[in-house]
Design a protein around this nucleic acid. Structure first.
Length: 298
DNA sequence: AAGAAGTCCTGGGCGC
DNA sequence: TGCGCCCAGGACTTCT
């Protein structure tokens, strides 16, 4: 699941694209060209040269000499790879940009959640959330004071708010869980209940988990690889995500998983104690399954 | 306004 | 062995 560190790693691995010209765009799955319409997309991309590679939150911005940005979101399973024509084309390859040095920039995405947007200076056609993105971890705007201000009165659960891109841009499920573990904060806590000290700690560990993952080339949990096909090594660094039932690295108790806001939240019940109201924290397992079965029967 | 829930998508895992 | 259901989750839309 590419989050900020993974997308930044892809960006760095593709910097060789700068100066390359798109000779031809081959779109096998038109739906993945999210904006503009396919014909216009092809016209505006063909013949253009990449001038820089940028990133905003989880969006990759491939800048073109026309002034347009080719915006790519990998979502869950997207991969952007620069490969030689003879390299085997992996399954689920939906878009191929043929470049002037003979190489190909290929976009593959098993679940087709990701996509391309070609955006002009006016930003028309950009996804609605793009304009609302909040500050990123490691940025100057991301400060303890900012977090206090933005979380101070929110009734939502801290886990959900960490995933809200309007509040912090670039965090996803993995790093939200990892940061909460390090801050020793239960994912189901109401944001407004966090003390100033806890928010300060939260700020510090958010930066920490992102920085550590960047140093390791990101987390290759399922399908993520960088632009050269290399996996990241941050999986070994994960303390709670994907470790349900395994012993906590701090206390040895089993890591638990609950659902918050429709997303799994991994945490250590002993190291991250919370006012675990059973009403709010729906356990994953037989109870949830029987509830689903009940819904089906109705 | 804000929070919660539903939606898209499909390979892999699991139960029967 | 094989069928079919469930699950993963980023960010959107819809409902409350």
């Amino acid at each position: 699941m590419p989050e900020l560190p993974e997308v930044e790693t892809v960006r760095r691995s593709l910097e060789g694209l700068v100066g390359r010209r798109v000779v031809r765009a081959e779109v096998r799955s038109p739906v993945l060209v999210r904006y503009p319409a396919l014909a216009e997309f092809l016209t505006r991309v063909s013949g253009r040269t990449f001038t820089a590679l940028d990133r905003r939150a989880k969006y990759l911005l491939l800048k073109l000499d026309s002034g347009d940005d080719l915006m790519v979101h990998l979502k869950m399973t997207g991969r952007l790879l620069q490969q030689a024509p003879l390299d085997p084309v992996e399954p689920h390859t939906h878009i191929i940009l043929h470049l002037d040095d003979g190489s190909e920039l290929r976009f593959a995405d098993t679940r087709k959640f990701g996509g391309f947007y070609l955006i002009g200076q006016d930003r028309e056609g950009a996804p609605p959330g793009f304009r609302r993105l909040g500050p990123e971890p490691l940025s100057e705007e991301f400060t303890p004071a900012y977090l206090r201000q933005v979380l101070g009165k929110r009734k939502g659960r801290i886990k959900s708010l960490l995933l809200n891109q309007d509040i912090i841009a670039g965090l996803g499920n993995i790093y939200a869980d990892e940061a909460l573990f390090r801050a020793r904060i239960h994912p189901g806590r109401e944001a407004a209940s966090l003390t100033p000290a806890e928010i300060h700690h939260m700020h510090e560990v958010v930066n920490q988990v992102i920085l550590e993952s960047l140093a390791l080339g990101g987390t290759s949990f399922s399908s993520y690889v960088d632009g050269k096909g290399n996996k990241g090594h941050n999986v070994e660094n994960l303390r709670v995500y994907g470790r349900e039932g395994q012993p906590c690295v701090e206390c040895g108790d089993p890591i638990a998983r609950i659902v918050i806001g429709g997303r799994s939240a991994h945490f250590c019940p002993r190291c991250q104690p919370g006012r675990t109201s059973r009403r709010r924290n729906r356990a994953v397992g037989s109870a949830a399954k029987s509830k689903r079965a009940q819904r089906r029967d109705e």
